[in-house]
Design a binder for these strands. Structure first.
Lengths: 239, 239
DNA sequence: CGGCTCATTGAGTCGAGTCAACACCCGTGG
DNA sequence: CCACGGGTGTTGACTCGACTCAATGAGCCG
């Protein structure tokens, strides 16, 4: 069943697109949104090379984006959580540059890009918001660049955990207890590490009392220790 | 002396902002541009934390952007060549997220962002162009992500050389003879390598006949060999 | 000439990758 | 009910690519 709740009534309105739009204009946004498309784990939202039509606001669950290397392996380029907008890398080419796949049962709101563009010409704050969103994405990519080119495996993992924690907190959830939406090998892939390395470091952090780890459940015990390593702001779309 | 040539007469008009704007609207763009600011090698265009006011189109020379690690070392996040637009990572925060510094004598056109934003509301193709530019930047960052997380030192260097070559070609210069605008240590920094590694691999490629290297002058002899390694599209703002 | 920055080369080390084995959970089907 | 198999996670042993440290060379400018 398709959920038809308006942006005004969505519990993500404080962290999602509507925050850029005056209350009396949310209706216009509502009109172009297609709400409540839902995805099963592993299902694709779009594929690389599909014609670019829309960006998507994640409403629940988690989405990963990836592209393929020449050898046909995935390179995961990002994780998108509720309230975040996925698909903006397609704007420049008329085709999506990457594929987007649900990590778990998820639902998204589709934002047809041409309508959004037209609406942006009438609602300056919406244009501004999209500029900011994209700029934020660039900024996070720069942080990631630093992480990948200068930081150790432990630093990278710390940064990812802190990012997930900050993003959970932003949605009103606990900042220290979190459930990882992705398996170890996808964390490793994203961070440019081997699965084994991620596994080893997670158990070491557990033994050192920095984390309590139980499969995908992580409890952050010593945030300062993590911060000393991963003081970076990965992929946080907070504006 | 400040150069006052209009966008219409600039030899970069085919690869720079005007390509998005109908000829009769270039004048409006001309009116908001501040042309011909020139920079000496090492001079900063802006610093991280400066209030964000403008993006800049590079007219000649080369600009690098970098941010600082906690330990105070630079992480170079990008190189910008004539016809490319630098500074878009500042949009999301009201402050520049990184610093921009001239690698060699350079000149830039300043594009005050608020004016540009306002103009974009009137010229849809300009809004579209900025969306595309930023999306392109995101896309290149994703390529870089893949490079840094999965590729060997040789692959990274090959990719950078191919990128510089493609960008030179786009401006109408030779695709095989190029002069590197940056020293070895800045190549290394950008690519997440040690200077020594860059040096070693460059001389190896030279000895293998893939490149002719003479300091910063590089002549690409065996493009296929490079492509086999670095088949990626780094930071090419071609739309 | 001396003092810089930039680049190269060599020797030794180490962090993280690879390969391989095994443990665990869970759903399926005999 | 238990056996089986696949996906996921952990652990150990070994290897290697790239880093670090150190020395030297080449060019440039005052």
């Amino acid at each position: 069943m398709v959920q038809t709740v308006s942006c005004n009534d969505c519990n993500l309105s404080a962290v999602c697109l509507p925050l850029a739009v005056a209350p009396d204009q949310v209706e216009q946004l509502d009109n172009i949104l297609k709400r409540g498309r839902s995805l099963k784990p592993g299902e694709h939202l779009y594929n690389a090379r599909d014609p670019f039509r829309s960006v998507y606001a994640v409403r629940s669950g988690a989405i990963k984006t990836y592209s393929l290397t020449e050898e046909g392996e995935q390179q995961i380029t990002g994780f998108y959580l509720p309230g975040e907008v996925v698909g903006m890398d397609g704007i420049s080419t008329a085709y999506y540059a990457s594929s987007a796949q649900a990590l778990e049962t998820s639902s998204v709101c589709e934002v047809p890009f041409e309508h959004m563009e037209a609406l942006s010409l009438q609602i300056p704050s919406l244009q501004r918001h999209f500029f900011k969103l994209m700029s934020q994405e660039i900024k996070s990519d720069r942080e990631l660049h630093m992480l990948l080119s200068r930081k150790s495996a432990e630093d990278r993992i710390a940064a990812l955990l802190l990012s997930l924690s900050a993003r959970a907190h932003r949605r009103g959830l606990s900042a220290h207890q979190l459930r990882l939406p992705m398996p170890r090998n996808e964390m490793a892939n994203y961070l440019g590490l081997a699965v084994e390395t991620v596994s080893r470091i997670m158990t070491r952090l557990h033994n050192e009392g920095v984390l309590r780890v139980q499969g995908r459940e992580v409890d952050i015990q010593d945030r300062d220790h993590l911060c000393r390593h991963g003081e970076l702001r990965l992929n946080v779309q907070n504006l």
